[in-house]
Computed example of a mutant assay.
Amino acid sequence: MAGATKYPTGVRVRGDSVQINIPIGGKRKYVTIPQPPTPKGISEAGKLRAHLKDAARWGTLTQADVDAACNVKTTLIDDDRPLFADYAQTYLDNLSSDNAGTRRKYKGILTKHWMPFFAAVPIADINAAMVRSALNSLSFNAPRTYNDALIPLRGVFDLAFLDGEIDDMPTKRIRNKKVQRDDPDPFLPAERAAILEWMRSNWTGKKEVWYLYYKWQFWTGCRPSETLAIDWSDVDWSHNTVKISKTLTGGKVSHATKTYHMRNIHINDVAKDVLLRLKQLTGHQSRVFISLHTDEPWTRDQKLSEKFADAMTGTDMRVRPAYNCRHTYATTMLNSMIEPSAAAYQMGHDIQTFKTIYAKWINTERMSKEMMKLDYSD
């Protein structure tokens, strides 16, 4: 008989019994399993413990699971095909290390929605009917939440398909639900002017950088995560452009944009004036936008959004989220007769997405051009 030091981790022999150490309810317990203390029995105990540990890692292990597992047939323990939990973990591990926020989101979705159904099931045994049954058992508060839940699930099966573990994708005929997109709600030029004037008057001293941030947002249309990741090395003064190639996600800089396409945005005179003032205030740091209170780069935009809400209150403006600064710039470009393809590039959209979001303003711009052709002579 092999010595105890050669037993699989968490496995021990007590008399004629084999026991495994499993965390249940936050406490570690030794559970006796129906295996003889032979080399084969000890090996299979190690496999069983590994399966239960996977469930424990995903937070789905219950006492009932352990009780059921401890009475499984040997043939079930001998099934060494990869489980859904195995591929779920591999899928998360394969996500870009720069996108920690996405990894956290997808792990949360897998843990909440899919692991309770499929964690201990061999991924090759999961079919479309099982996925539909799980979907029918779940409750989603909105179509977008439903669609988001399918993203990592599809990713797990796609990885297993590429590895040849499954012959078909059980999710391929499961469609997303239609999501009604609200029209953008941009600020009118007079509203933008009033907001910026309130910010300029009320945010002085170290608060001035908040005003400069929103002036930049109104006149570049950058996503907040893009703005907070800009370094001074991204600014090309000779060509009046700024390279947008990074985002601030989960408090860390990710070297990729939301669409994974780098772009060089053109900065107009207003945006250039913002940069010139920021150069005086933050030029000693590598990052363009920093907190003047801490002299450190911001790690998230939530506080800035809260400050924007203060400006809404201070100006008695109809309340809208800070993200509408971006919509304001897009519609300003269209109302200024800038070609939609050029505006789409500036915003970091493909042309089709841009046309979908700003269809109303594109049509207005086209109509204005057409109306100029009217002949008013008698």
Rank of each mutant, 00 (worst) to 15 (best):
A190D: 15
C222H: 02
N268L: 07
L196S: 08
Q285M: 15
K279W: 04
R200N: 15
L196A: 08
E306A: 00
W219E: 09
D273M: 02
A190P: 03
I267G: 01
D183H: 14
R192N: 04
P186S: 05
T247G: 03
T282M: 11
L188T: 14
L304Y: 06
W232G: 03
S225P: 03
T294I: 04
S238C: 00
V209H: 04
D231S: 14
K243M: 08
A190N: 11
Y213R: 06
Y214S: 04
A256D: 04
S286G: 09
H261Q: 13
I267R: 01
L228M: 11
L275A: 09
A193C: 07
L212N: 06
W210M: 07
Y214R: 13
K252D: 12
I267P: 00
Q302Y: 08
G221N: 10
Y214C: 10
T249E: 01
Q302L: 03
R223E: 10
R223K: 08
L281N: 09
Y260K: 12
R223L: 09
L275T: 11
K243P: 00
P297D: 09
K272G: 01
I230S: 04
S233Y: 10
I230W: 08
K246G: 06
R287Q: 15
L278T: 07
I290T: 13
I265H: 05
W203S: 07
R200Q: 15
F289Q: 03
D231W: 14
H261P: 06
K215E: 08
L188R: 14
M262W: 12
A256Q: 08
K272S: 02
T294V: 04
A193I: 08
D273V: 00
H255W: 13
S254T: 14
S286V: 06
G283N: 10
P184V: 09
I290F: 11
L212I: 12
S238E: 03
R300K: 09
V274N: 02
L196K: 04
S291Q: 05
Y214F: 15
D182V: 08
R287H: 15
